[in-house]
Design a protein around this nucleic acid. Sequence first.
DNA 1: GGTGAGCGG
Length: 147
Amino acid sequence: MAMKAAAIKLKAAAAPSTGFRALLFSTSRFPFNQPSPAQKPPPAEPSTNLFVSGLSKRTTNEGLRGAFEKFGNVVDAKVVCDRVSGFSKGFGFVRYATLQEAEAGIKGMDGQFLDGWVIFAEYARPRNPSPPTQNGPSNGFSSTNFR
DNA sequence: GGTGAGCGG
């Protein structure tokens, strides 16, 4: 009599077990994994080029340079403005002379206030090489598509 | 020019 009850008990316990196992081994992806190949990890790799966001619309190149010059030698400071309207887009780029100065600039200016807005400084991403004011393809020729 | 996450001429 007791064996019958034990058999039913085991059968009842084994039935949901398979269901759980199938559920556990069928879930191939969870948000804990990182299936993305290389999209956008939060901070970029160290570089002398800095991406500054959160700027005020009234912040100009001189204001940006003046704010970042206190932490190192700023080689280039540029606020990105729209080409047609000419107004600031609210972000810019600051280039330091060395990586140590860039690191000090990020640590010193990230989260600070500039013209009433909290700005964020981080390493800029490497982008396509063809600066018209640096390479000088003013003839209509481009060194990118040369084949 | 009023925009508020983002990567430039």
